[in-house]
Design a protein around this nucleic acid. Structure first.
Lengths: 341, 341
DNA sequence: GGAATCCTGTAAAACGATTTACGTAAATCG
DNA sequence: CGATTTACGTAAATCGTTTTACAGGATTCC
């Protein structure tokens, strides 16, 4: 029942090769025949079989994306951005999640490779990035995004994380804050460490005490739990910086639980910029990652390798932007005292 | 350089057919040969080419998902749920976005069909669902999710939207609210209309005035704009129900803008349950859609058609849950007066 | 005006797997 | 014990494209 190129050829009174040329545009076909083939195809409802096409042609119009978590809107926005890029050129996207596990990452990567895609974009689940060996063995162009091991050689697109940390810290210092808490997901990740470094550098330059670092884990529940334990204890910080989306939520939830008011008692800078951040009260000051540009940069890199051109590997670094809203303000008392309710 | 089944066969000293049988498990192979083939494959780094496999076998281990927007976390969570289901069985997922446009939907659908996937799940961008004709012409099993035209015949998985509306309205009525505003994305969508119907039925039963309906559109910016215009005007409502995620955000943003306090001045029930909802203050009362179960239900349906079994079409309806938090409370004055700042 | 070049069509050979048809050895059966 | 089935291996056909090789007619070039 599936209609093949031969059926179309027969109906249009041409050879299969000609039909192929009409659709692929690989070789010129006379206008009249193009017309005949097109209408024959339309009548039959023919659509070229991608598996067959890809098998013969050797190149697939697919790009594969492997991310740590499909529930994390940062990752899915990135996928959305890439999708918007590639669809104009007739590419499709196949997605997979490593669920934050290195072994699963390797397995999924192999599975994706089995598609012989035109390119792969991967956001590794850890800095070890053990899977890189798998990729090294293939010919498939790939770019590593967001979490890039420091001494990685290939194509990569990241944020300028040091700068992101710097901006957040400078903003709060300028407001008059002196004691900082940083809520990081985990310091095992290079990008998180860089964000911390940016913050620490600013505080050091200003002669302030280094920030209190809290590792809050990778999901909301553990984040609130760990921050909760910390905030119950007596402490003096007035400035909180979240280094991931879930850390932002964790800080907010705990502040609410312990009866601290934002920004009166504490100021908080969130990470990632989502719609809810300017809908809530107070609207959140946050560091916005240029997700869309990231998708563009990734595709540009992949695109470069596409026609067999072997471009030199490059590392691109995008800069984040601090969006100032109302969750940050000058500390209420000069002593930076924190009131626990 | 790509290593094929022949290379493995040669190295293991068997025929290609045998190698195929080892990996596909289609026919029995002696333990000793399995061992030889496996290790040969491992040494060579062989992974079976899915395009070739699929071409010959006629069936693909892929399911395609077509959603209106990859930036909407409801849709991507659903994809995440489906991914979690199918990966155990060695299926991959290919995603596409219709960007809310019916023509694009049709185009993307054809493109997806060209993969000859094992199944397709589609969340239509409108009730017209013009693309259904495309699907009707194929043999590919598909299930329509979330937005299902009322007289659609095939497999479908939806929420019990009437019940969702009912729950929200009953909750607010029980708190003592008498004047309602409903923020809907657009009444063109069947599911939205059903949610409204649920609310209206409750109010009617209680002898209350029907709710004021506002169509806020499909994204955050237009939502805040339209709600803003409305809230500036004098009105008396104390109870707000959002019917989509963006409507929730719109209400919150406008309340904040016009200086209304939640839940003191107005109560609001949000739609969809995201992490941010219990992190913000006040934590939001909301209607939670069982996204995970929805993914499971979809795969169960698709799975049923997989081995050629032709099961009867069915429509599955999942029930939502009202999560009560702190954004809803009894109205402050019995007269239901709304203070405009 | 003859040779070289382009243009555009067809037939047939791939691509890398699966599957069918067949063959041989071993196991089972009456 | 001879006949029949089972078990398991191989060779070759096949899936639906793309691409190569070739061919005939039109064009172009000296």
């Amino acid at each position: 029942m599936p209609v093949s190129i031969k059926d179309v050829a027969k109906r249009a009174g041409v050879s299969p090769g000609t039909v192929s040329n009409v659709f692929s545009g690989n070789r010129a076909v006379k206008a009249e025949l193009i017309e005949r083939v097109r209408s024959a195809a339309a009548e039959l409802g023919y659509e070229t079989d991608r598996a067959a096409s890809q098998l013969r042609a050797g190149k697939a119009r697919v790009v594969a994306a492997l991310v740590p978590d499909l529930n994390n809107p940062f990752f899915t926005s990135l996928i959305a951005s890439i999708e918007a890029q590639v669809r104009d050129e007739g590419f499709d996207i196949i997605v997979a999640s490593s669920h934050g596990d290195a072994d699963e990452e390797a397995r999924r990567l192999s599975a994706l490779l089995a598609w012989r895609p035109a390119g792969i974009v991967i956001i590794p689940c850890s800095d070890e990035f053990a899977s890189r060996n798998i990729l090294a063995d293939t010919q498939v162009p790939f770019v590593v995004a967001d979490r890039v091991p420091s001494l990685f050689q290939g194509d990569a697109v990241t944020m300028d994380n040091i700068d992101a940390g710097t901006k957040a810290a400078e903003h709060l210092v300028a407001l008059g804050h002196r004691r900082f808490v940083v809520a990081a997901s985990t310091l095992k990740l290079q990008n998180i460490r860089e964000r911390c470094a940016g913050i620490e550098a600013v505080l050091a330059k200003e002669g302030l005490a280094p920030p209190t670092l809290i590792e809050v884990g990778l999901d909301f529940d553990t984040a609130t739990e760990r921050l909760g334990v910390f905030m119950e204890g007596e402490q003096q910080a007035s400035a909180f910086i979240a280094l991931t989306n879930f850390a932002t939520l964790g800080i907010l939830a705990c502040a609410h639980q312990t009866g601290l008011s934002v920004p009166r008692d504490i100021s908080v800078v969130g990470f990632d910029d989502y719609s809810w951040m300017h809908a809530v009260s107070p609207p959140m000051t946050a560091i916005r990652q240029p997700v869309k540009q990231m998708g563009q940069a990734i595709w540009t890199r992949l695109r470069g390798h596409l026609d067999g051109r072997s471009e030199p590997a490059s590392r691109e670094k995008l800069t984040c932007e601090l969006v100032v809203r109302a969750s940050t303000a000058a500390p209420s008392s000069l002593g930076d005292t924190l009131r626990i309710a």
